[in-house]
Nucleic acid binder design. Sequence first.
DNA 1: GGCTTAAAGCAAATCAATTGCGTTTACTCC
DNA 2: GGAGTAAACGCAATTGATTTGCTTTAAGCC
Lengths: 192, 192
Amino acid sequence: MSRNKMARPGGRSARVQASVHTAVRELESEVGRDALSVPMVAERAGVTPSTIYRRWGSLAELLSDVAVERLRPETRPEDHGALPADLTAWAEEFLDEMSSTAGRAYIRDALLGDPDGSNAGQCSAYAAEQVGIVLSRATGRGETAPDVETVMDRVVAPLMYRILFRPAGLDTAYARRLVADLLGTDGASGDR
Amino acid sequence: MSRNKMARPGGRSARVQASVHTAVRELESEVGRDALSVPMVAERAGVTPSTIYRRWGSLAELLSDVAVERLRPETRPEDHGALPADLTAWAEEFLDEMSSTAGRAYIRDALLGDPDGSNAGQCSAYAAEQVGIVLSRATGRGETAPDVETVMDRVVAPLMYRILFRPAGLDTAYARRLVADLLGTDGASGDR
DNA sequence: GGCTTAAAGCAAATCAATTGCGTTTACTCC
DNA sequence: GGAGTAAACGCAATTGATTTGCTTTAAGCC
């Protein structure tokens, strides 16, 4: 987390952190992300505003921390028996989650309240970890597979770029085509 | 621009817009991006703060508008006589400008104060336009060239993804490799 | 040239952010 | 396990940003 060096990780500090994060999540769903304010979060969390300002610095940094938590994958990628199916399914789900209104808001929050870039790096690390699982499962089966960096460049980056810069006209077919172009899986790779 | 529907585009409105934008640019270089405030900009621009709040909504949206202006390319891509050289040079320069401290700040500002995504879309359109110039020059010479969307996916998106999410370890060699991998220009395309 | 109304100015009121200082309490070192 | 130390929190006062109702200006249109 941005400002949380956690020099004192237990007891009251931990309780404050937990109740503040919970307050953000509750209020996000009750009043909406844009209506949040530090005093509002503080009151819900049973804490004074100055505590939040001193620990997180600003609302943006607090939201960035919470957003990264929500972007953490909860499950391992499904196993469909072969790399093309695995990677396609993962890319489709990634796109689905990230391009939703909520997903885009979390990505933006994670990027924006992030002075040192550690939260953004964490988001990227989550994706790389999931991709790594898919790829090592493939090599374990004896399939040939590209390395993680290549998948980040050819699949994850284009998806994220379009989510952030050109949200219109994104669909699962686009995700499928990125994976097919990378793996050379079908004969229609020049079909755009 | 985000909130500027420009229902009344001439005269005083235009002067206010120009003087506010100028004030932002001047103050950015004088006191730094992080010290800016709406009242400060308003005073420099000879305008009342409420004018800025009503026209732009917040400091974030104003900075977003100014950032997009600064991200507009000022020159056409150089002509080196062949597509690989043209595209490589353009990608290197793009990376240089965008990955600088100032460039990253502008990208973040452009994304941040952008409720409807139009400013982000404009950034992407600038890059697509430059790429389009390079590619159509190539086809004009009789070279075979990928289309713009492919270059966006294979070159622009990976560069931007890394600038935003993993700024460490970015260099011109990476940009060159992305272009070479796309164009099949050298025998070492698997050199990572 | 007069009419209409979007946009700007002004000023009061509200709300968020900052800061100094006293208190609580988690961690460390006997 | 019992001080000692300093980090983290609470409280309250202050500062500064934001919002809002109302008035004034001037751009665009007959």
